[in-house]
């Protein structure tokens, strides 16, 4: 091992993996929350929706489209003043979180919207006919019936997020991207770049694996 990766400091590598994991999980939680909100807003305010509203629909859809159009690298740079204001610095894992969440929530929001659209209209109608409140319909019908799709969507988003954390590493967010760039690429120690790549791939596999298991468990169709 030591021969294959002469320059890798195993302790640093493990620490970097932990940082990537941390950023991914926290950003994923934020993405989940905001993405579900955005998705619901898009779905409910759409024509024929439970809260049909042209203006809300237009504003939400525009925001989502704009933030999805901005490449992630550019988004981080754009957000530097904002993170500076928030954290006093733009370096470090926590400072990366706003950019990670803002970068992936609109993407997940669209996936949520697609998942909700897949729900049979008849089921929503049946709930209405039973006298359900809109809140009941949202929590017990919409989110519950689309759960497998929401989980698959979250898995896809998590994997994109792992990629984003690596990009964020390049401006000093920490994690495997940071380690690969500053210790590997910058010093021309390519074994470090390679080791980081392997770990990122493993992390991606892990998320995919867990996501698939959960989605399959939930899918009773």
């Amino acid at each position: 091992m030591a021969n294959l990766f002469p320059n890798v400091d195993w302790f640093d590598l493990i620490e970097a993996t932990g940082e990537t994991f941390y950023m991914t999980i926290i950003a994923l939680a934020g993405t989940l929350l905001i993405g579900i909100l955005l998705g619901l807003l898009l779905y409910l305010s759409a024509p024929g929706g439970l809260w049909e509203n042209k203006y809300i629909n237009f504003i939400t859809a525009s925001l989502v489209n704009i933030f999805r159009a901005i490449p992630f690298v550019v988004l981080i740079l754009l957000l530097i003043p904002f993170t500076n204001f928030l954290f006093g610095t733009f370096r470090g894992q926590d400072a990366a979180l706003p950019a990670l969440i803002i970068g992936s929530a609109p993407f997940y929001g669209r996936l949520v919207e697609i998942a909700l659209r897949e729900i049979d209209k008849g089921v929503i109608e049946a709930a209405k006919a039973m006298g359900a409140k809109t809140s009941t319909i949202i929590f017990k019908v919409l989110l519950k019936e689309s759960l497998p799709a929401l989980v698959s969507g979250l898995t896809v988003t998590a994997i994109a997020l792992i990629g984003y954390t690596a990009v964020a590493g390049v401006i000093g967010a920490g994690g495997l991207g940071d380690y690969a760039y500053f210790y590997g690429f910058a010093r021309r120690d390519f074994d470090i770049v390679f080791a980081c790549t392997v770990l990122i791939v493993l992390l991606v596999f892990l998320f995919q694996f867990i996501g698939d298991i959960i989605a399959n468990k939930l899918d009773k169709r």
Partner: peptide
Amino acid sequence: RQEIGMIFQHFNLLWS
């Protein structure tokens, strides 16, 4: 509506 039951051609059950 809670006092008006309704059944449908395609059943409209919650699959979950």
